[in-house]
């Protein structure tokens, strides 16, 4: 039987596992942000889509001030969900098209590190787009959205949506119909997150007591934890042939 060959770069098992894991996550985030801030391919597409969606909603609905307030949460989350899908799809397509996903999978790190790297990158892209969309929405709909509570809800909703979206994008990108497949897979699964986010955001904007919106907020936190845990466990199986 062949003996196990030593390797010049091998560290002790624990050091390699822990240090390598976080190094891999940070390397993927660094790579994605660096490439994106050079090309603006992904953020610009998400942003243009979001702004167009907001404009269409604005002119199509022609609502009075009071009704606008009540639809704000729905319009916002519909915009974020569609723009987010666009970003998730593109982010994984970039990895797949030139074989870079194989490059990631060949690295001697736990594959969940690749998931978390892509998750944090996708979350960063989504938050950047949201940070630009919120002031535009505030101006168009004459509604102040810069409230810490609402921003916290948007953060929670984005974490849930991106966590499960990253997993499903890794799955759909391996198929020929990836552009169509991702929304078909993602929307039913993320429905619970979106519904909770809309309820919590709407309640917050309409001045509801915290007791009234605590249920959807708690639900958002639970979904975030469940989706991250499931994605952590399944990513390896999803990306391997």
């Amino acid at each position: 039987m062949a003996t196990k060959a030593s390797h010049p770069n091998s560290l002790s098992k624990k050091e390699a596992a822990v240090g390598g894991y976080f190094k891999a996550i940070s390397a993927i985030v660094w790579k994605d942000l660096r490439a994106e801030f050079r090309s603006w391919e992904l953020i610009s597409a998400m942003l243009v889509f979001s702004l167009l969606a907001l404009l269409i909603f604005n002119f199509a609905l022609e609502l009075d001030v009071k009704t606008r307030q009540s639809v704000t949460a729905g319009v916002l989350w519909a915009t974020f969900a569609f723009a987010g899908t666009l970003g998730l799809n593109r982010s994984m397509s970039i990895e797949k098209d030139r074989g870079c996903l194989d490059g990631l999978l060949l690295a001697p790190v736990d594959r969940s590190a690749i998931y978390f790297g892509k998750f944090f990158s996708n979350l960063a892209f989504m938050l950047i787009v949201e940070a630009i969309v919120l002031p535009v929405y505030s101006v168009l709909y004459n509604t102040n959205l810069f409230q810490p509570g609402l921003i916290a809800i948007i953060l929670l909703g984005s974490v849930g949506y991106t966590s499960v979206g990253t997993l499903l994008a890794a799955m759909s990108v391996q198929t020929r119909t990836r552009d169509v497949l991702l929304p078909i897979l993602l929307f039913p699964v993320a429905f619970a997150v979106l519904l909770s986010a809309v309820k919590a955001s709407g309640g917050f904007l309409n001045g509801a007591d915290f007791a009234e919106i605590s249920f959807p907020i708690n639900l958002l936190i639970v979904y975030d934890i469940i989706f991250i845990a499931i994605s952590f466990m399944l990513f390896d199986a999803v990306v391997e042939e």
């Binding site: 060959a5 390797h7 770069n9 091998s10 790579k31 660096r34 490439a35 994106e36 050079r38 090309s39 391919e41 970039i94 030139r98 074989g99 870079c100 194989d102 490059g103 060949l106 001697p108």
Partner: peptide, 16 residues
Amino acid sequence: ARLGVVSHLSLLYNDL
């Protein structure tokens, strides 16, 4: 950790 792989795809990022 002990493998180097080269394929007909470069596995490189165009924007880096």
